[in-house]
């Protein structure tokens, strides 16, 4: 009997508390439903996020500028060679285009001056060029040997080991050529020290070896004949593209990048030079 009374008393005393409890329970369920359902959650938090994004956009330089600048500066300082390798193809092309443009302007100015000049040789050359349908300067070059790609070597910087090559004639052992070229490069570097300097060209009679140095490897291209500006520009473009491809593939997957793959890459790129593409 006493127990019944106690229960009644408990109901009376705790009724409010139970109701509040039920309300809270329902609210938690409703919140849980919103959180678990993306469609319901999105419209609620989107405005807040939007505000935050706007705030970040507006204040990004102030909030993160100093930290990012410091981080980039440190990264560049710690890995200068990698940065140079990464930027080389882009900056190299930009500089080359700028210089080419300036040279073209200079050439045009010289042409204007030449046009004004009067000489028998000039007239004869001009007439020949006109009949042949070629540029006057190129006509002079045709008297000399045409430039042609003879060999291409891709060589590891330190060891001097051959990574891949292309040769028109296969006269010498390419591994030994790669070793000797590296030894010559090393000798020049040791004999004439001074900052970041590398051997870039070797000339002997009708041949020219053009060397392009990157951090882990270098490319040596053997050209015969007289290199005219067009050929040189085409070669520069091909070298830059080729080096970029090798860096992406070789540095990306050193272990599985085979000599055959590299040889194919050399043929695909440098073949354009002799095909006149």
């Amino acid at each position: 009997m006493d127990k019944q009374k106690f229960e009644v008393l408990k109901d009376i005393l705790f009724e409010d508390a139970r109701k509040r409890n039920e309300e809270l329970d329902n609210k938690v369920k409703a919140i849980d439903e919103i959180i678990s359902d993306r469609a319901k959650l999105e419209p609620r938090i989107a405005p807040i996020l939007e505000d935050q994004v706007h705030y970040l956009e507006k204040n990004f330089p102030t909030l993160f500028g100093a930290a990012i600048t410091a981080s980039i500066r440190k990264q560049i300082k710690d890995s200068q060679d990698e940065v140079v390798d990464a930027l080389y193809p882009i900056i190299g092309k930009m500089i080359k285009k700028y210089i080419s443009l300036e040279l073209a302007r200079l050439s045009e100015r010289i042409d204007r001056q030449l046009d004004r000049a009067f000489s028998w040789e000039g007239w004869i050359r001009r007439i020949k060029a006109w009949f042949g349908g070629v540029d006057e300067r190129d006509l002079i070059m045709t008297e000399l040997a045409q430039p042609e790609l003879e060999e291409v070597f891709v060589i590891q910087q330190e060891s001097g080991l051959l990574m891949g090559s292309y040769s028109k004639h296969q006269t010498l052992d390419q591994d030994m050529v790669a070793g000797m070229l590296t030894a010559i490069k090393t000798f020049v570097k040791e004999a004439f020290p001074g900052g970041y300097q590398e051997l870039e060209t070797i000339e002997y009679e009708n041949y020219k070896i053009i060397i392009n140095n990157l951090k882990s490897f270098y490319v040596a291209v053997v050209i015969s004949g007289n290199m005219n500006t067009d050929f040189k520009m085409k070669l520069d473009d091909i070298m830059t593209d080729f080096e970029q491809q090798v860096m992406e593939k070789y540095l990306g997957d050193k272990e599985n990048f085979s000599e055959d793959q590299l040889t194919e890459l050399i043929k695909a790129n440098f073949g354009k030079l002799n095909n006149g593409e």
């Binding site: 590891q156 910087q157 330190e158 001097g160 080991l161 591994d175 070793g179």
Partner: peptide
């Protein structure tokens, strides 16, 4: 195995030989 043999000019000590000749040696 292809052995690329670098026969370096003799010196009384290898320290007189440029390090870059020796780097990358296997």
């Amino acid at each position: 195995v292809s052995m690329i043999i670098w026969d370096v000019a003799g010196e009384s000590t290898h320290q007189k030989i440029p390090n870059s000749y020796k780097l990358g040696a296997h």
